[in-house]
Every structure is written in C-alpha cells, then in structure tokens.
Design a protein around this nucleic acid. Structure first.
Lengths: 136, 136
DNA sequence: CTGCCTGCAAATAATTTGCAAAGTA
DNA sequence: TACTTTGCAAATTATTTGCAGGCAG
C-alpha cells in the first residue's frame, strides 16, 4: 500500500511520475534504509534510462514531504528510510544494524526539557541503533 | 589549561608536537565547534607550513582520545568541539546555534531503556541545538 | 499547453591517501 | 636511532548543478 505516500505527494502538488512511484515501491519492498546509489542500482533494471541525480532530487523531495526520513550514520553519507508515522508528531528513528530495518520512537522526553546547562533548547536529533525482533 | 588534554595524548602514547598543542589551544581559545578547514586557516598564521591533511588526521586522532567530540550537523560535514567531560561517562553535546559553544548533557535516560519497539538498543547518538546563556 | 521532471555531462568540494622528509622521544 | 608525524600533490568519491528535451496534469 503506497497510497499513503502518494497522497503526500499529491498534497504537496508534486507530479506522480512512474519513477517516483517506483522509488516508493522500492523502499516498501526493501523495508530498510537505503542510499541514493542503492535505489538507483535497484531501479535501473526497470527503467532503461534513469539518472542518479533524479534519485538524489527525489529522495530529498520525499524527505521534505515526510515520505522519507533522513538517517544519520557515522560515515556522514546520505541515507533515507520510509517514514511510517501517519501524523506529524515528534518522533525519531531506530535502525537495525543487521538488516537496516527502520523503526520509530515517539516517547522522546527531551521535548519536556526547556533548558540544559543554561542552553535554551531549540531542537534536537536522535539516532538510535539496535537489533530488530527478526534479527535476534 | 590544556594539560588535561595533553595528558590524554600522553596516555595514548602519541607525540606532543607543537602543532598538536596549537590545535588544542586553538579550540580552547575559540570555545566553539570548528571545521578542519577553520582550524587550518586559523593556525596557518602561526606555522609557515601546515597541511590541511594533518589537521584532518589530528582531529580524528583527538576524537579517538576523547579530546574532541564529533558534532553532527544537518550538512553532514565534519565538525569537532572540545570534549570537556573528565571521565568517560555517557554524555551528549549541545551546541549554541548562535556562537557555536559546546556544552554537555549527561542526564540521558535512553540508557535505561533496553528495547524500543522490539529493537534491542545497541547504541544511540543525540545532537542538541540551543542558545547558550551568553547569547540570550 | 505549461510548467514540472528527468537524463546527461560536467562541476563542486570535502575528505583521504601515498610517500618522502622532518621531528619527537 | 626508530618510529611518528607532517607537507605536498594527487586521488577519490559523494553530491550538486545547468540545460535541453520529455512528460504529467
């Protein structure tokens, strides 16, 4: 069911091109976080012509629509994973270090804190790594 | 007082070269997180010859010694800030979005959680942004 | 039809590596 | 002296940009 994600594109007045649909399907199928390059390699089989820059542009676009989430990794490269949360509630992502599955974490109590050590908090990002149920 | 940091180098059997000392002093003087390039520009005045690769290598080394902490930013570039914590206790860093000052945050209660959504947590990283006392 | 999307080629720019020379302990 | 550390030049490689043609609405 990618309708949920396609609607996010519609809501934002972006065109539903075959390649955009395929990117979303690819994330649904893989069920893990991916690099632009991986998405590109995976979809090249399906499309005679497919430019890596388009993938970069679309993944970035998707992350702005709330379809994808950027995943932070120590190597400081670009990673994206499907963002499953329906609403725009505050949440973070947890990734499985074995299979790459992306989960969500909503009970972040950092929002309750207003200041830390004299700093007035304006925002924060949290990246959690772990091992998912299947991989244990 | 950079003795604290120099000792960390000694403990790890790294040589105390003038450039290494200068890098640490530079961080002490600036009191903010910096890019390798900024450190390099700042120290070139002092040293006739100074290679950017040496800065990269030393900053990475320092972060392994616990002298510097890597700072995560949305632009996914390398940033380092002095790590003030004396012991190796679990902590995170908070940066001032105005002046770049680096603070610390130790009351992280994520360590208490063992699992989230079925994921067994193996580690996590948290980056907090805010406005420091001086900048308010 | 109109403006957004895309491919291709090329640019950008940060970071890394190899190696010989210099410096520390 | 022996082993690190460093500078320089060059490589690497991810990501971005410009532009002409293609396609969705």
């Amino acid at each position: 069911m990618n309708e949920l994600y396609l609607n996010k594109l519609r809501e934002n007045n972006f065109k539903l091109t075959p390649k955009r649909k395929a990117i979303i399907d690819f994330f649904l199928k893989k069920d893990r976080y991916l690099t632009p390059e991986t998405v590109w390699r995976g979809l090249k089989k399906k499309f005679i012509q497919l430019g890596l820059p388009s993938i970069y542009r679309n993944l970035e676009l998707f992350s702005k629509c709330g379809i994808l989430a950027k995943i932070q990794r120590p190597d400081r490269k670009l990673y994206y994973g499907l963002c499953h949360s329906k609403k725009n509630n505050h949440h973070h992502h947890i990734i499985c270090i074995k299979c790459g599955k992306v989960g969500e974490f909503s009970d972040c109590d950092l929002l309750k804190k207003k200041t830390i050590n004299g700093f007035k908090i304006t925002n924060h990002s949290l990246q959690i790594e772990g091992i998912c149920l299947k991989c244990r």
